[in-house]
């Protein structure tokens, strides 16, 4: 059961991180294309975008742990019954796993973005105003 929930949480996490990355790319496509035209290399352009993704992902972790702990507390309180109670114990490994899933999602998203940037059609982006 917990594994099912964890799986679904993973799916949600993945969807969020991927969307974040993709939308950042779309929002800044023109700016990034201009940079490419000005002579920035692909790697440099990629770095701007990915650094941002990485920093936001990392910044988000401690508050994420805190919120997770808070939600776990809510759940623990809800689960307490006459037959059994649980103590709110969250191992470090749990935080590590949660963060790993999110970071993994970020890395996969980064790979997609990288491929997108490689294919970024400079002319088309600058030509059409969409």
């Amino acid at each position: 059961m917990a594994s099912i929930y964890t799986g679904l949480a993973g799916v949600i996490a993945f969807g969020v991180v991927y969307n974040n990355a993709r939308i950042s790319l779309s929002e800044r496509a023109r700016e990034l294309a201009s940079l490419r035209v000005l002579g920035f290399t692909r790697g440099e352009v990629l770095r701007i975008l990915l650094l941002e993704l990485a920093i936001l992902t990392l910044i988000a972790q401690p508050p994420g742990w805190l919120m997770g702990y808070g939600l776990a507390w809510v759940m623990k309180t809800n689960l307490a019954g006459e037959l059994m109670r649980v103590r709110l114990v969250v191992e470090h490994s749990t935080y590590v796993i949660a963060t790993s899933v999110v970071v993994l999602a970020a890395i996969v998203s980064a790979a997609v973005i990288r491929e997108r940037i490689d294919r970024l059609d400079l002319v088309a982006v600058l030509k059409t105003r969409d």
Binding site: A2, Y5, T6, L8, A9, G10, I12, A13, V16, V17, N20, L56, T57, A60, Q61, P63, G64, W65, L66, M67, G68, Y69, G70, L71, A72, M75, V90, T94, Y95, I97, A98, T99, V101, V102, A105, A106
Partner: peptide
């Protein structure tokens, strides 16, 4: 992203 981490922690 923090919420994504949070629901993983809680599950």
């Amino acid at each position: 992203m923090a919420l994504a981490t949070a629901i993983l922690v809680v599950s």
